[in-house]
Each structure stands twice: as structure tokens, then as C-alpha cells.
Computed example of a mutant assay.
Amino acid sequence: MDKHLREAKQTLECRKVELLEHIHKTEVDHNTQELSEYDNHPADNATDLFDREKDAAIHQHMEEEVHEIEHALKKIMDGSYGICEKTGKAIPLERLEAFPTARTIVSESKPFEEYRPVEEDVLRGFSKSNKDQADNETEFDGEDAYQMVARFNDTSVEYDEETGDTDLYGANGVEEYEGFLSTGIDGYHGPESVDIQQNEHYKAYRESRK
């Protein structure tokens, strides 16, 4: 066994011992430490669940790494260590030093795109929730949320009575009359608590009703 193989074997064995010790010390306990659930706020239970799930994920990751190490050690013993499992080419020494359990050369490794978060499979951008073209739609959709955030980059430093979008709904409102109706700090408590602001949205509303 040459020098590089001995060093790789030693590195892998040391890492395996380290992982097994850590796995033994951090066995995942799926039971809550609380004697009763009645006095707990739901957030306390959620935190407890999150911690257990995090520990379980780390535990699984370490077990998978141990499996890869055992596979690499087996290849050292049968003389196939450092050989790409897909092409049969020699894996560069630099790659093995940085990634001792490498099974393939870089060009045959799993593309980065395949490691993308699973959440991206269901995300379709704001266009999926854009209902601005529907005149009878009053839902505060994804497009509206984006516009509200984006307007902070476009607002002038000078004071202007009208801020934000001035589209069909007026001032980021869901319905057009929200651009000119307001209440006091104590909120709505009847029609008498609603004030009409004499602004451009009110004028446009009046013009559209003529």
C-alpha cells in the first residue's frame, strides 16, 4: 500500500471513529421531556418538535457519511479506491484529498441543479398569483405583495401625499375605495368612524361613477 492510500485509509478511519462516537452521544430521543402538554404554549411544543427533527436530520446525515466511509475503505482493500465508478478513470489526487469518499471524477458527479431545494418544485413566481387583469378580483395576490415591497426602492425622498402604487385599486388597496377611506387610530366602530380623504383616488372614484 503506497503512501497516499495509507494516508487516505487513516483519514477515513479517524473520521469514522469520530462520527460513530458522535452518533452514540446524540441518539435521537423522539419523546418530549415534558411531563404534561396542558400547561405548554403551542410554540413550546413546536420548538421541541423542531429540535427533534433537526437532530434526526443531523443523525441521518452522519449515518450516511459513515456508509460512504465504509464503502471507500472497502475499495481501498480491494484495490479499486481512486477509480471513477462511472468512467473507470483515475480520480485526481487533489479531489481525493479534499473529498476522500469521492466515487467519481468531477465531470461525472451529480449536477448541482439536482440538489436544489424541494420547495422550488412548487414555486412558480408571482405570475402564478397575478390577478390584476381581472376587474372583479379583490384578492390581495402575490403581484400586490411584490409591488408593496418593490415600491420602497422607487419612492421619492421628497414628501408626496400619494405614495405607492396608484393602480385600479389605489394606494395598494384591495378595492378602489380603500384609496380614500380611512379610520382613526382606534379602528372601525361604525360608519361614523370612517373619513373620506379628498385625494386623487376619491376624485377618480367620483368620476367613474358619473
Rank of each mutant, 00 (worst) to 15 (best):
M1I: 00
D2T: 02
L5W: 05
L5A: 05
R6K: 08
K9A: 14
T11C: 11
E13R: 12
V17L: 11
V17P: 02
V17W: 06
V17D: 13
L19G: 06
L20K: 12
I23N: 13
K25T: 02
E27R: 08
V28H: 07
D29E: 05
T32C: 07
E34I: 11
S36N: 06
D39C: 05
A43R: 03
D44H: 04
D44P: 00
N45Q: 08
T47Q: 03
L49K: 07
F50N: 04
R52G: 02
K54E: 07
A57F: 10
I58G: 00
E65N: 10
V66A: 14
K74T: 14
D78N: 15
D78G: 05
I83Y: 01
E85P: 01
T87S: 15
A90E: 13
P92A: 01
R95G: 02
F99V: 15
P100T: 02
R103S: 11
T104S: 06
I105F: 01
V106K: 12
S107W: 00
E108G: 03
E108F: 00
S109F: 03
S109P: 01
S109C: 08
F112C: 01
Y115T: 05
V118K: 06
E120D: 09
E120A: 10
D121C: 04
S127Q: 04
K131R: 06
K131Q: 03
Q133T: 14
D135K: 15
E137D: 14
E139D: 05
F140Q: 06
F140N: 04
G142C: 04
E143L: 03
Q147D: 07
R151E: 07
T155G: 00
E161Y: 09
E162K: 11
D165Q: 13
D165T: 08
Y169W: 10
Y169P: 01
G170A: 13
A171C: 06
N172F: 11
Y177N: 12
G179Y: 12
G179E: 09
F180H: 12
S182Q: 09
I185Q: 02
G190H: 01
P191G: 03
P191M: 05
S193K: 00
V194K: 00
I196A: 10
N199C: 06
Y205M: 07
Y205P: 08
E207V: 15
S208N: 13
R209K: 14
K210D: 14
